[in-house]
Nucleic acid binder design. Structure first.
Lengths: 110, 110
DNA sequence: CAATTTACTTCGTCTGTCAAGGTATTTTAT
DNA sequence: ATAAAATACCTTGACAGACGAAGTAAATTG
C-alpha cells in the first residue's frame, strides 16, 4: 500500500540528507535506493527530487559537482555540507518528537 | 519546541476526525483541546481548521449543525459520519505504516 | 464600559508535490 | 543492426493545504 503524497511532504529533504550521510550520491541512485529501502512504499517523483536538490543546495545543506565518468551518462553528484549534517540531526530529533505528538493526538483513550 | 507547519500537513483532517470520535464538538473547542493535548506543540490556525471542516464535510466524513445555545455565542457543531469513522480507522493504520517507513528511511545503520 | 474571550468566516499568498513534457546516452533484446 | 528499455538529467505549470490577516458579532470580565 503506497502512502499518499502529503504524508511525504516535509520529509523529502530529510530523506535525501539521510541518504547523503552515507556518502556522496546522485539523483537517480538516491531515488532507486529510497524506493528499494521503502519496499515500494515510497516513490519520490523526479520533479520532487530535483526541486528538492535545488532547494537544499540553495539553503547550503548540500553542494553538487559533476562526476567525471569515463563511461555512462553524466551524473551530478551531491554531497552533504557540515551545515546539512547539522540539519539532518535536527530533523531526526524533530521526527521523534512528531511521532510522539501525533501518537498522543490519535490515541484511543480520552 | 513547536513543530513546523509541514509536519502537520496531511494530519489536520485525521486529528479533527479523532477529536470528533469522542463526541460532537465545535471549532473553538477542538482547537483548544488539540492545543492542550499537544502541550502547545501543535497549534492549528483558525484558517487551517475551518478550511479542513469544509473539506471534511464536502467529503462526507463529517456533518455540521448549529447548536441551540440559550446563552453564549452561536456554535457550529460537527459530527462524525459512519464514513468518517471508517476514514479515521484507515488514517490511523496509515499513520502506523508511515512511522515504520520514515523510521526505516532515517535509521542510522546502512 | 472597555478589554478580553468566545466563536465563526473568507481571501490571498506561499510552498511542496507532481503530471507532463523534454534532452541525451547506454545497455539489452530481437 | 536496430528497436526498446534503462540510465540520467532538467523544467514548467497546475494544484492543494497551511496560514497571515482581516473581518463580524456576542458574551464575559475587570
Amino acid at each position: 500500500m503506497a502512502l499518499s503524497a502529503d504524508i511525504l511532504r516535509g520529509y523529502t529533504d530529510t530523506i535525501i540528507l539521510r541518504q547523503l550521510a552515507g556518502g556522496d550520491s546522485y539523483g537517480y541512485q538516491i531515488n532507486k535506493r529510497v524506493a528499494e529501502k521503502s519496499g515500494g512504499g515510497l516513490e519520490m517523483k523526479e520533479a520532487t527530487l530535483y526541486t528538492a536538490f535545488r532547494r537544499l543546495e540553495g539553503a547550503g545543506y548540500i553542494r553538487s559537482y559533476w562526476g567525471d565518468e569515463m563511461s555512462g551518462a553524466r551524473r551530478r553528484y551531491y554531497a552533504l555540507t557540515p551545515h546539512g549534517r547539522e540539519k539532518l540531526l535536527q530533523d531526526c530529533e524533530a521526527w521523534q518528537e512528531t511521532k510522539r505528538l501525533i501518537d498522543r493526538l490519535l490515541e484511543e483513550a480520552e
